[in-house]
Design a protein around this nucleic acid. Structure first.
Lengths: 163, 163
DNA sequence: ACTCCTTGTGTGATGTTATTACGTTGCGAT
DNA sequence: ATCGCAACGTAATAACATCACACAAGGAGT
């Protein structure tokens, strides 16, 4: 018992173009279903996050958009990110003040992130064990649990040699 | 199995003066043991955090110090906080960009925080189940785990009625 | 077609959190 | 005594985030 799991993926090499395309299609479908509007700007922000496959700061996104000749105000990026986070398509990694595209935009569980402190790569997993234990803890203490995130820091397989 | 535990405490009423005093004594002892220097400034920052028993921003600490006629530069507060965090006497709650005194400055486990979004009160617990599951996950994916934090958000028993 | 309403955008200013750079002080060890 | 190191003091600035307000696009009801 007590266990992690569900394909850790993420740090492993994979067909990235395909993984990005899949994620976009899924995102579009999800938005269509819920009536949310995945506008070009929002879509582009999501795309950039998917392509880079690591946590990006809002101003990093900003400058990429600027490179493409798009608008240049922080507000715009933050609004797109707010939307994407609300849809569950993007997560904020608070430790880094940065954002990462969700790699499993389905489940409602609290996600767990393995964040590489060197390259800012992020692997997303779910720890089912956590949710249960936390629910119990919250219940015992009378806390109304609304949201949980686990953030772990360390070195990913790629950055390990360097260190 | 699989479980939370270890006295959730924290949101419960308690003898606060005593709990602060105890924590300070423990902190002093720990520093003496490890050779770390708990200077007056560092000690004062820790005290303020202990007294308030909730997460405080660096600039909040700053202004309290200023009220007491102490120095007023961010750097100073951040340096004290860095030290305290390094000693494990204080934790940073990344979601809030704020800091809270550790209520169980012993164990090496990754802590779990229940953060009230209304009052910023923080209850600290340990989820042994989490550590194990995460270790396993990290091992499977080749990630060198250095640090983990679980942050949950919701309403504490005190703030629940208001909502 | 027109108005109304809601949602998304554009833009500037501002607020909040955190770090850098550089100099000084205090104190123990040689 | 002087060297070296950790802590402290100070100013400037960087990085992250929000606010306030105006405008545009598109759908719903008349």
């Amino acid at each position: 018992m007590g266990s992690a799991m569900a394909t850790p993926l993420a740090f492993e090499p994979h067909n990235h173009a395909e993984c990005v395309a899949d994620a976009l299609i899924t995102a579009e479908r999800r938005c269509r279903e819920t009536g949310a509007r995945l506008t070009p700007q929002r879509r582009r922000v999501l795309e950039i996050l998917l392509e880079s496959h690591r946590a990006l700061g809002a101003y990093e996104l900003l400058s990429r958009l600027a490179d493409e000749g798009r608008a240049v105000q922080p507000t715009i990026v933050y609004r797109a990110l707010d939307f994407l986070v609300a849809q569950g398509l993007v997560h904020k990694i608070a430790r880094l003040s940065a954002f990462v595209a969700c790699t499993r935009p389905k489940s409602g569980h609290g996600p767990a992130f393995l964040v590489c402190r060197a390259c800012r790569g992020v692997a997303e997993a779910e720890l089912d064990a956590v949710q249960g234990a936390l629910d119990m803890l919250a219940k015992e203490s009378g806390f109304a649990l609304e949201l949980m995130v686990l953030e772990a820091e360390g070195l990913c397989p790629g950055c390990r040699p360097a260190a």
